[in-house]
Amino acid sequence: MADIYDRAKAQAARMLAPRSAGGKGLELTLRRTVVGEYDPDTGSSETITDYIGSGLRENYRMEDIDGSLVKAGDVRFMVSPVLLNGDDMPEPKTLDKVLFDGETYTVQRCDPGDYAGLSCFFYVQARK
């Protein structure tokens, strides 16, 4: 049964791949900042990790904007489950950043398209 979900994941990765690779998406970066112990060599306690993947951005419909959970200006990304290097994309978390088409967005929430424990894509609500 897992085979059908593997095929769904592969299909989503192909469709959400950057246009240069034959897909419908654009390159995006998921930036995760983790606060840890202070490192005197770097002068910081933050570790920033960039995950280079791809996806699509769309605006919310007017009827979806409620002013509290979804605000005017929020966007929704459909993010590929696979990074450009072929590794799995980690599930986006609240307060991660999404760098897409020259803009930076903050993740508000993530709704994974998760089938039988396998993430086939991620819907990400993000805000500037």
Score class of each variant (00 low, 15 high):
F77P: 00
D64M: 12
I65F: 12
N85R: 14
D64Q: 15
R76M: 01
T29F: 02
S44I: 06
D50G: 08
R19K: 15
Q108N: 06
L28I: 07
A21S: 13
F121E: 00
Y123P: 01
I65L: 10
G55M: 00
A17Q: 05
Y60E: 10
T42G: 13
V35S: 15
G113L: 07
L99M: 05
L30I: 14
Y123C: 08
L84T: 13
Y51L: 04
A8S: 10
C120W: 04
V70S: 00
R32V: 11
L84V: 08
D96V: 06
M1D: 00
E27P: 08
S45W: 10
V79G: 11
Q125W: 00
A17N: 02
G53K: 07
P18N: 13
D64V: 11
P40A: 03
D96E: 04
R32T: 11
S45N: 09
G25F: 06
D87E: 11
I4M: 11
V34F: 10
M15A: 11
I4E: 04
V82S: 02
L28V: 07
G86Q: 15
L83W: 15
T106Y: 04
C120G: 12
G102V: 05
C110D: 09
T47F: 10
G43N: 06
K97A: 13
F121I: 01
D101T: 07
G113S: 08
R76C: 00
K93Y: 01
R32D: 07
K97Y: 03
R76Q: 10
A17P: 08
R32F: 00
K128E: 15
A72V: 10
D87H: 14
D87A: 06
P18C: 03
P112N: 14
F77N: 04
K128Y: 15
R19N: 09
R14W: 06
L83Q: 12
M89D: 01
